[in-house]
């Protein structure tokens, strides 16, 4: 098999049977601290592969698009071939790891809402944290895509958190990577394993790579325990949540907007002299039965063209944030 890419813990091969599929092989090696700490544990690749397989299937079942197609023999997954976005998306529910270090925040502090962070995927720069503004200025990823990735990441966070909660575990944080398939669908890619997330039990004991990072136990037995726990979970019991997206329709510039003009006059009568102009549009809160996908985004555009807006006089945008 032709090797396409070699990462720290995985190798990607071309699928001899199809141009738009790849075979991802999980290795036994483990690295930490930007590659400073390195080791290998027999069977680790296989367990990480098992966990990724289980979680990708679970997320697919809840409506999230992933690159996962099927499990192959050995520590290998057959996946859709994607172009990976050069950004790692990290979602945090509780302060830990680099977040605690960066801001001097005590490990274990729970956030009111999950936090989504972006990191540039570039080893030579040591994968720095980056803002959405900087990412779009550099032109690495567009704002629309970043908002989409954020939404999907928050959905993944909900579904992973709920599944773990069922088993008395807490999802602290995790890292995702996304890719674009040959047919322009954005999918969740890479892996989802204890190598890429932090999970604590009810005594705040780690069931993830922190065991290796902090040298406090046997990695394989911890990973196995997590796998067994996940296998005992009941994905069907995790409720699917409805998600809201907003469609904003507004009059095109240059098109007269009488409702805005009368509203402006009324504001003037109330004494708000600072108002220069008012343009009245519409906001549609569209409640979806399942997480946002590229297909749903495409549907939202068709909905706009067919019904929600009149493209002759109005412009529309889908707001995901």
């Amino acid at each position: 098999m032709e090797l396409i890419h070699e990462g720290k813990a995985k190798r990607v091969f071309a699928d001899p049977d199809s141009n738009n599929r790849v075979i991802i092989e999980f290795s036994d090696s483990v690295t930490a601290g930007d590659g400073a700490k390195k080791d290998a544990f027999p069977d680790k690749g296989s367990i990480a592969c098992d966990i990724s397989e289980l979680l990708f299937s679970y997320l697919e079942g809840k409506g999230i698009d992933t690159h996962y197609i099927k499990r192959l023999k050995g520590p290998q997954l057959l996946c859709k071939k994607v172009t990976i976005f050069p950004v790692e998306v990290v979602c945090r529910n509780i302060a830990a790891g680099s977040f605690s270090k960066r801001y001097g925040v005590e490990k274990g502090i729970k956030f009111e809402k999950p936090l989504v962070e972006f990191f540039v995927k570039d080893d030579s720069l040591h994968d720095p944290l980056i803002t959405m503004g900087a990412l779009t200025r550099i032109g690495l990823v567009s704002r629309d895509v970043l908002q989409f990735l954020t939404r999907v990441t928050l959905s993944v966070n909900y579904y992973l958190s709920e599944l773990l909660k069922q088993q008395g575990l807490t999802l602290i944080d995790f890292k995702l990577e996304f890719g674009m398939t040959e047919d322009n669908t954005i999918v969740l890619a890479d892996e989802i394993s204890p190598d890429t997330m932090r999970i604590w039990d009810n005594k705040s004991t780690s069931l993830d790579k922190d065991v290796f990072r902090e040298g406090k136990g046997d990695l394989i037995s911890v990973y196995k325990k997590l796998l067994d726990t996940l296998r005992a979970s009941k994905p069907e019991d995790v409720e699917i949540v409805k998600e809201v997206v907003q469609v904003i329709v507004e009059p095109k510039s240059g098109i007269k907007n009488p409702p805005g003009e009368v509203t402006k006059k009324a504001l003037m009568r109330l004494g708000f002299a600072e108002v220069d102009d008012v343009r009245v549009g519409k906001v549609f809160n569209i409640i979806l039965k399942k997480p946002i996908t590229t297909e749903i985004l495409n549907h939202l555009n068709i909905m706009n063209v067919k019904l929600l807006s009149n493209p002759i006089s109005e412009k529309h945008k889908v707001r995901l944030e």
């Binding site: 098109i255 007269k256 907007n257 009488p258 409702p259 003009e261 009368v262 009149n310 006089s313």
Partner: peptide, 16 residues
Amino acid sequence: AEMGLLPGALLPNESA
């Protein structure tokens, strides 16, 4: 007009 069988669109009257 909304069907696109005829060109253009009918907007609110200028006087509102």
